[in-house]
Every structure is written in structure tokens, then in C-alpha cells.
Amino acid sequence: MFTGIRRVVRAGFVGFWRSAYVSLASIFVMMVALFVIGSTMLIEQLLTSSLSTLQSKVDINVYFEPSAPQEEIDAVRKAVAALPDVAHVTYLSREDALQRYRERYQNNEIAMQALNELGENPLGATIAIQARETSQYESIARFLEEQRTQTAAQNPIIEDINYARNKESIDTLTSIIAAVERASFITMLVLLIAAVLISFNTIRLAIYTSREEIGIMRLVGASNTFIRGPFMLQGVMYGVISGVLALLILYPVLVWLGPRTELYFEFNLFTYFVGNFTYFFVTLVGIGVAIGLISSTLAVARYLRV
């Protein structure tokens, strides 16, 4: 048993080395395929993160009347924060709003004068609401409108909700995000299938050149496992080597690309790659090994049927 394994391993390595051209061709094709898969993973990540950056910039602002009592503002705030669709609520009190106004217009004398003349704080409190998904703003806005009409009769506390004004841009963004996610998913799926098929076919061709050898091995009484073993090992070796090579190529590309993505997408691909290196290593080498192993097993099985 042990001798058998040792012989299969040795035959695998010797075969790999002696048919170096075929090995090299297979490794090269698989490397390109794995590089495509790796890039796909990175692009996907870049898209996701830039979309979430965009999403985090979308919010609904509720402006309260300056005269609104603090308890009622707090009640609305709590009710909104309790909604399942709401990710984040930022509260800006009247005083803070005034403070911010002062800071912004400190060099504008007319504005400061106007403020001093009024004598009291003319600004209301504000809450900024962020939803988990852009598509959820609709329902949050509806909830706020209900709150508004409920309290409006006696003395209104909500002065304005800016959703209606932002609605169009929020809707556009929502549909763009959905379209981009769908398109990128389909593109990646197609690329992935193409990469797998091309690698698969290359290994099959490599083994096709050995079909006579397989027949000869059978005729001298080699068992199927003994014949298949070295080819499967070679498939695994192709996978490991091409996976590592793909990572080696990705590295300098990302060193160059990292700062640029940082600039445009506020997301550094290089940092992400280095931070998740284990994930990339396991995925690419794993896919490589799986493709190598499966395709060599299937290809040899074809010629074992003598």
C-alpha cells in the first residue's frame, strides 16, 4: 500500500517533469483562468464597497419645528430607531444646530447680525435617518408622514421631511445599484464558467496526448488506480502551481492599482488583498486543485475504458 502510494507520487513528479511542455501549457492556461477568477473577486469587492459608500451618503432628514417639545421629538426619534429597516439615526439638537450655524457663518456678519437681532434660537432639531437598503427609504418616509399627520392637527412638531425632494435621486440610485449588482453577477458567472471550461479542456488535451500510454499501462496489467494516480497528482500540481502564479501576478498589479482605487472608490484594493490573503490563497489554489483533479480524473477515465 505504502509502496504503491510512493510509486504513484514518484511517477506523478517524473511525468510532470518529463512532459514539461504539456505541463507548462496547462499551468499557463489555468493561471490565466485563476487570474480572471481572482480579478473577478476583487472587482466584485470593489463594487460592493463603493456601492455601500454611496448608500451611506443617502439619508432622510426630518426637520422639527423650533417650538416642538423635546419629549415629542424624542418619541419620534425612538419610534424611527425601532423600525427594522433603519440602520442609523443621527440626532441634531436645537443647540447643536445653532452651534453649527454659527461655525459655518462666523465670517458672515450679516448672518450673525440677523441671528443676534432675533435674540432666540430660530433653528429646529433635526434627525438624519439611514436605511439598511436604499429601497427601504420609501417605507420609512411613509412612516414619518403618518407621524406627521397624526400630530399636525393641534400643533405640528415636524416642519419638513426632505424625502419627497430626494425621492427621485434615491429611486435612481436604487435602480442603478440593483442593475449593477445583477450585471456584475452575470458577467462574473460567465467569466467563471469560461475559465473553468478552458482549463478543463486544456487538461483533457494534455491527457489526450497520453492516451496510448494509458492503453499500454492497461495491457501490462496496471490497475486503474495505479494508472490514474500519477495523472491526478499532476492535475493537483497544475492547480497548486497555477494558483500560486496567479497570486504572484495579482500582487504587483494591486500594488499599482491600490492607491488609484483608494482615490476613486475610497477603497484600497491592495490593502484588502493583503488583509484577506489567506482567503484569496485558499480560494484560488482550491479552485485550481479542484479543476486539475476533476478534469484529470474525468479525462483518464475516458481512456481507461479499453
Partner: peptide, 23 residues
């Protein structure tokens, strides 16, 4: 089928085109 390799080991085969493993 699984026993065929075992059977073939009792027979030595020689062919016109030699059928040696080229590698």
C-alpha cells in the same frame, strides 16, 4: 473488469509497434 489487470499480469504481451512508454 476490476480483475482484468490481475489476469493480464499472467500474460506477457509483445506488439508489432512495441508499445513502450515514451516518457
Amino acid at each position: 473488469r476490476s480483475r482484468l489487470p490481475h489476469y493480464r499480469r499472467k500474460i506477457g504481451t509483445v506488439f508489432q509497434d512495441f508499445k513502450l512508454l515514451p516518457n
